[in-house]
């Protein structure tokens, strides 16, 4: 049975319908990528899963339990952590306090202390800056802190929203290296990305979204070789040359 299953989920912000029936599955121990252009609804999918947005229809099941519309703080207790878009760290609290807050639902202070050490070994720069206000960190460091803070809850599933957004290429590599390492440690990951190259590189399975719907799903391997995905998401045309932006309208996406 899949760790996370969402079925026919619809959600809207006021009159704007963001999700028009999303069905997807995340198997335990896998990295699943959710790809799509800006405004396709990827972030809304994550927010619906983690309880920030309540779905209008459909169901969300986590570890066999129906969690549709459950409060976000309880989901953290069940083993789901969300690293949101824009990081949402506590800018006025220190790096150390941010990590402690990540473990808010836990009561095992010895293990919390050793987990903080583990985060500092993942990201040594955080150890150096542990007494500083988190708002003073650079964007990449804030992303590291956001991921570490989510890990402090000892989640089984992590929802990662645009971990590469605004980061230098070297940092993006480092972050995705950590994502791989987390999977090897047994954490299941659902990652939303615009950097499809990077995401399909680490993922086992992928979904592609367009305007509130899932239009394609397959193993990451197959998606990497799918001509339409190559052209529209990886920026490689059939002949292996870069696509020219001006020509994109001429070609139709095959799933339409």
């Amino acid at each position: 049975m899949a760790l996370l299953e969402i079925a026919n989920v619809e959600a809207s912000y006021g009159a704007v319908q963001a999700l028009r029936g999303i069905t997807l599955k995340v198997e335990a121990g896998a990295i699943v990528a959710l790809l799509g252009a800006n405004g396709a609804g990827k972030t809304s999918v994550l927010k619906t899963i983690s309880g920030i947005v309540d779905p209008r229809r459909g169901s969300v099941r986590f570890d066999g339990k129906d969690i549709t519309g459950m409060e976000p703080d309880r989901l953290v207790g069940l083993g789901m952590s969300h690293v949101p878009e824009g990081r949402e760290i506590f800018r006025l609290r220190t790096v150390h306090e941010n990590l402690i807050l990540g473990a808010y639902r836990r009561n095992d202070s010895a293990a919390i202390a050793s987990d903080i050490e583990r985060m500092y070994s993942y990201f040594p720069i955080l150890r150096e800056r542990q007494r500083q206000r988190a708002g003073l960190l650079s964007g990449g460091q804030q992303q590291m802190l956001a991921i570490s803070r989510a890990l402090m809850a000892r989640p089984r599933l992590i929802l990662l929203d645009e971990p590469s957004l605004g980061l230098a290429p070297l940092l993006v590599k480092e972050i995705f290296g950590i994502i791989r390492r987390l999977r090897d440690e047994g954490i299941t990951i659902l990652v939303v990305e615009q950097n499809a190259n990077m995401a399909l590189d680490v993922a086992d399975y992928g979904y592609i979204m367009e305007v509130g719907r899932i239009v394609l799903e397959d193993s990451a391997e197959a998606l990497r070789n799918n001509p339409t995905v190559r052209e529209f998401y990886l920026g490689i045309s059939q002949e292996g040359t870069e696509t020219q932006a001006g020509q994109r309208w001429k070609r139709k996406k095959q799933w339409r």
Partner: peptide, 16 residues
């Protein structure tokens, strides 16, 4: 204090 600063982030880390 964290909740005062950023309510959404408080939800994300599991603060009720």
């Amino acid at each position: 204090q964290a909740t005062s600063e950023n309510q959404l982030a408080a939800y994300y880390v599991g603060i009720p």
